[in-house]
Nucleic acid binder design. Structure first.
Lengths: 344, 344
DNA sequence: AGTCTCTATGCAATTTTATGCAATAGGTGA
DNA sequence: TCACCTATTGCATAAAATTGCATAGAGACT
């Protein structure tokens, strides 16, 4: 047999028309059960698979969604934020559960990605993943909206950007972990992590943090906030800067696990013990967190729900159902690094 | 304007035929420069993009490659092997550099993925990523070969499987790290990591390890090999088993960084110091390795070259050029966890 | 018997682009 | 002037599937 079999080949063998084959293979009730089974049998024998391009062209939909991952161009491939990886896993699974394919693209920011996927009919919708704030990001999001492209952003709802977003409740996460430390008897707090509009996630965690302190009347003992991007290295540097002040806090809330590990590393270098001298908490619950020394108290984002919700929202948009911004609750994971004084 | 513009719309505006538009947009020398520029100008104004499905259908190729990631189904989404993630990054970049799209799919092993992509014309070729040894894996690889599907496997060349493979030189990696430890004065070695056909990568590292020991005449002092899958937890458990023997080695070569971190953790629990009592090495150079306590000596696989080479091989196959198995050299990264006795 | 209904199937149009072949125009050389 | 060449453009078709509409045949009811 030359080349792949087409629906015409099957039609010929089954002695029916090609349209009947098409219907039979999509389990249409319009075709008699016996005929349908016979056709499906022949299709199996010939190893027939429907041609996605022809099918998509006719149907004017691709059953594919595109995942665009925006990363700080300064970080190299191996430095991809572990949280995004985890969410990528759950997105692929949610897609395949819905019988959608997934196109993945790491964007560098110069491309005209805004038209690259839906306009070409490569994908029916876009998932935008990454920490916001890029060159032209806002302008391109606006253009997506104008073009009626289906898209969902990962991140907090933000009036600056149009369209729907799905995000983790970073405010609540920052709040509960701080509340936990307060309950453990800590009183003098510092926060390590950028807390400005360039990193809205970190900012929200910081705001949850200060909200908890304010509620507990601990703002008068507040030690300060120290910038750090999401790496171990940045955490170490920030901690060194923090300790340079002579005095030190008794609890450090970090905006990510990697930062926390860096902070603990720096503490070890200056002879401070965790949690005896300073309790330290992270954020993300990366695989290593449970096995760090000490085991790291952290906040876990529900990546499974995140991926599933993102896909769900995109599918709803494709089907012209309405959606709205969604916040996914985060959960506190208590380990040794936040143990109270009394336990030492 | 209703719907997206097609090449007919442009033809109409430009007062030429649709075929001329098609040629002009692909920069064909068959069309007059002035006409071509006029057409491209109009296309830009109308925000026209070629319909990928129609184009693919006509051309009978998709300019897409599919990445199939096989993972142990027992691990959850967040446990994806960091090495694969890193390679994923370089694959996406290599693809976009070659103007190919990338479909990503995490396979559970029951699907008939072997026909799911190229037979449907969703992709022109397949990259198979993951540790081998799955249900029906061999049978399906054979079927791919029979169907003349273009594919490249990640992993060592293995006569059991047909087709081309690209892999990291794990034998050499295991060899150089062991050689390094020997040069540091270590003599009594243990290996932690599975070393059987279920984990061919680990096995090759182990074989490089024993080769170095044999060459240095240290096999009579060989302490033993202890099974562990690639997690921190498995490393801890293996180490506990190892220490249960009463005696201990002075160097432990681990099959992955996470295992090594688990081993160091277990050492700390039984009061053994690294590197003073036992030198420990990892494999993969994950982001945390440089900041572990002590900083971990490890072997780095060149993921950038890996992704690029995988893509290159697939593209060659698609263009009917010949390719052959490729081994990518690994490089040793020396840090504190392998310091010699004398330094203590 | 005539008509009506219902089911199953076939026919033909449609989706958009790429491309082999034909055609046209304008110029050149004999 | 005719034949021919070259450069450009248009025509028609093919790629493989989906789907609205038409219709054949069977059975039912009047």
């Amino acid at each position: 047999m030359k080349g792949k079999a087409t629906s015409f080949d099957i039609a010929h063998r089954a002695g029916v028309s090609q349209s009947t084959v098409s219907r039979a293979l999509s389990n249409s009730p319009l075709v008699n059960r016996e005929t349908r089974e016979r056709i499906q049998q022949i299709a199996k024998e010939l190893n027939y698979k429907v041609d996605k391009n022809a099918s998509n062209l006719r149907k004017q939909r691709s059953s594919t969604i595109a995942l665009l991952l925006f990363e700080d161009p300064s970080t190299d491939d191996s430095q991809i934020n572990p949280f995004f990886i985890s969410i990528l896993g759950s997105i692929t699974k949610a897609c395949s559960a819905a019988n959608y394919d997934l196109l993945v693209s790491f964007q560098n920011l110069t491309d005209d990605w805004h038209a690259e996927f839906e306009d070409t009919h490569k994908a029916d919708g876009l998932i935008l993943l990454g920490y916001g704030d890029y060159l032209d990001y806002e302008a391109k999001i606006n253009q997506l909206q104008e073009q009626d492209t289906h898209f969902v952003r990962w991140g907090a709802a933000d009036p600056k950007y149009p369209g729907i977003s799905v995000g983790s409740n970073n405010f609540q996460g920052g709040y509960v972990v701080t509340e936990h430390l307060i309950a453990q008897g800590r009183t003098r707090f510092a926060f390590v992590g950028e807390a400005d509009s360039h990193a809205p996630e970190f900012l929200a965690r910081f705001q949850g943090f200060t909200h908890a302190l304010t509620q507990a009347n601990l703002m008068d003992q507040y030690f300060g906030q120290f910038d750090a991007i999401f790496t171990v290295e940045a955490g170490m540097e920030a901690a060194i800067e923090l300790f340079a002040e002579g005095d030190h806090p008794d609890a450090i809330v970090c905006a990510s696990d990697l930062i926390a590990l860096g902070v603990i590393q720096a503490m070890r270098q200056v002879g401070l013990r965790c949690p005896e001298d300073i309790a330290v908490t992270g954020y993300d619950n990366i695989p290593i967190a449970a096995f760090a020394e000490p085991a790291l108290t952290t906040v876990q984002q529900d990546t499974k729900a995140a991926g599933g919700t993102l896909v769900e929202h995109i599918l709803k948009q494709i089907n012209n159902e309405s959606t709205s911004d969604t916040l996914i609750p985060a959960s506190l994971i208590i380990r040794d690094s936040s143990k109270p004084y009394s336990k030492t």
